[in-house]
Design a protein around this nucleic acid. Sequence first.
DNA 1: CGCGGACTTGAGTTTCTTCAAACACGGTGG
DNA 2: CCACCGTGTTTGAAGAAACTCAAGTCCGCG
Lengths: 239, 239
Amino acid sequence: MADHPTCHRDAFQSHFCSLCQVRGESVCAALSDAELEQVAKTMAHLPVKQDEAVIEQGAEVDNLYVVVSGAFRLVRVLADGRRQITGFVFPSDFLGLVANEPSAYSAEALEPSLVCRFSHAFLSDLSQKHPGVKDRLIAKGQNELTKAQHHIVLLGKSTAEERVLAFLQTLSERATPNEDGAVEIYLPMSRQDIADYLGLRMETLSRTLAALKKSRKLSAVAGRSVTLSALGVEQQQFA
Amino acid sequence: MADHPTCHRDAFQSHFCSLCQVRGESVCAALSDAELEQVAKTMAHLPVKQDEAVIEQGAEVDNLYVVVSGAFRLVRVLADGRRQITGFVFPSDFLGLVANEPSAYSAEALEPSLVCRFSHAFLSDLSQKHPGVKDRLIAKGQNELTKAQHHIVLLGKSTAEERVLAFLQTLSERATPNEDGAVEIYLPMSRQDIADYLGLRMETLSRTLAALKKSRKLSAVAGRSVTLSALGVEQQQFA
DNA sequence: CGCGGACTTGAGTTTCTTCAAACACGGTGG
DNA sequence: CCACCGTGTTTGAAGAAACTCAAGTCCGCG
């Protein structure tokens, strides 16, 4: 559980964009090697401490961050103090895509993470010369929208069990099944984070996980690691 | 209730883009008068019958529609037959912004409506010449994302009353308060549509409306017209 | 070894849901 | 003109699910 393997592996090779793990999926994909070298001079993989925010709710967003390693939560605090988590963000995803607006949420690191920072000013220059960059940003934006809609569908489900399973399934797409077909999922976020994402109380989440374990839909629940059973849950495709 | 004033007013002047009600907020805003005349030759305000879909779930999206009058619901049907409504769409909003993808939802008219259709092929040509058009599409996309996040926050709220009030308040932003400060809201959608949007049963919605009436937070509930009380609900701003 | 935070479990209450029946309204046909 | 029907909506009563508050457990860390 501690010392998770996918974290920080590239912490020391990261100053060379050409070696960047997520390059192929970020804005950089639209650049040639020569241009990349230019970019590399101003770029660096920035370390972010756990619970540190790279975007603050209510503040202007003037940088775009590409997550290189680690994970983030998007938190919105309501007037009465309740939290709603509107998303989790993983490597190759972007933070702060929407420029020059007071942010509706904060983006906080779930664990020590690495990000790559681009100022929006720089990006708009870049996208003048390279239309591909703008298209890339549009594509990521549409991806964001798709994820938000998934979240809406998830929250529309009435029972806690459905919501939890749907959540675990989307996470499982990032993981690789082991030899018996079960999928172990590492959860970088706390139970409270998950509960705030699912619109449930933490206690309900805990009970639901216990119930899923008992009904064998989950073969293990151990702190921040859960494993989906092999037979699994039949994928919920739309008609 | 019948014969709602904002519907169809422009049904017959609509072939002239320069007279279009929503022109200032649509893609057309980025075009000059001369270009607009070009566009006008291929464009027309297309009538859409009630319950007709301009976008079908699972089908490719190859047109962008700008809603000129009327209203639409975005419906996603799940494998088990349940519906989730992911949004309502009003004049000057876009339908089918995301191109060339099987759509995650259908867009169905809530009432007889008028839309303006642009093929995505045409739009990408247009945005070659006019970078402003692309920026316009990006802005609208970000707007979509903002709305989706609002919806997520709404669905995160635990009680039916909060959800219903939040829903009515967002609708009330489109309406004008009358002289005593109360806001009458016309609901073009059915109770079932609202319930599917809020993640509630229709019965719960109905009871909640009745309760809000009794507690005087709503001064009237009459079929498809409800009026928010003058003192109203203090706006839920985030901290 | 003991403390503290995160997580789980328990008991009772509130809220939403379910299933069923009543109601309201608009339209149709006698 | 009015009785009738169908759809959409409201109301009722019983049940299930999630919530609240409180106590208990687990685990890492000093």
